[in-house]
């Protein structure tokens, strides 16, 4: 079987070649950083937590047996670190998940490009997604912002595909309620 590029880099790193780890970081730093940012919505946290994920990967690479792809494994580490962070933060301050976002009517579906540039819409989307409970936020982010298939999300989060779908449905329903001004009427 021909090994993919990541597997070869992992092998080289396991044999002590530090440069191979640098290559893996360069390849995935943007994806890991933006994943952490999508989950935390804070650039300082995203930088810190994404680097924590790489540090953890560096120190436990020997545990990576290649049963999943390297990037699925790295995503799993990142999501776990971010979820722990979100849970700690949630404990620090009680977050209300029922707050409804009041918005002016925007015909975003007529002109999605304009909607993309709409600052208020972006702020409300950020606020709505940010208010999801950690597990739903993780599933939602991996599916809608990262575009991963259900099976891969299940593998990253260590849950069943049915669980992923249930979390997605609940997340969508919550977002629909929060973004009522945009999607109803």
């Amino acid at each position: 079987m021909v090994k993919d590029e990541d597997a070869l880099l992992v092998d080289r790193f396991k044999k002590g070649e530090e440069k191979a780890f640098n290559e893996l970081v360069k390849k995935y730093m943007k994806r890991i950083y933006y994943l952490a940012y999508s989950l935390t919505n804070n650039h300082a946290d995203a930088l810190d937590l994404s680097q924590e994920a790489f540090i953890k990967a560096y120190r436990s690479i020997h545990r990576f047996r290649g049963r999943s792809s390297f990037y699925t494994w790295l995503y799993r580490i990142t999501v776990n670190i971010c979820l722990n962070h979100l849970k700690r933060e949630a404990r620090k301050k009680e977050v209300s998940f029922d707050e409804r976002i009041e918005v002016a009517q925007v015909d975003w579906w007529i002109n999605p490009k304009k909607a993309l540039e709409n600052k208020e819409l972006q702020e409300n989307l950020t606020k709505a997604i940010g208010s999801l409970p950690p597990q739903q936020k993780a599933v939602f982010t991996l599916r809608y912002l990262e575009g991963l298939p259900h099976k891969e999300i299940a593998s990253i989060l260590g849950c069943s595909i049915g669980n992923v779908k249930a979390n997605l449905f609940q997340a969508l329903q919550k977002l629909r309620n929060k973004l009522k001004g945009y999607v109803e009427g």
Partner: peptide, 22 residues
Amino acid sequence: VLVKTQKLVRLKARKEMPEGFW
């Protein structure tokens, strides 16, 4: 409504970090 919600959330833009950051 859920289809609209799905389309709407996909519009979530990502602030790209400058090259200097990377």
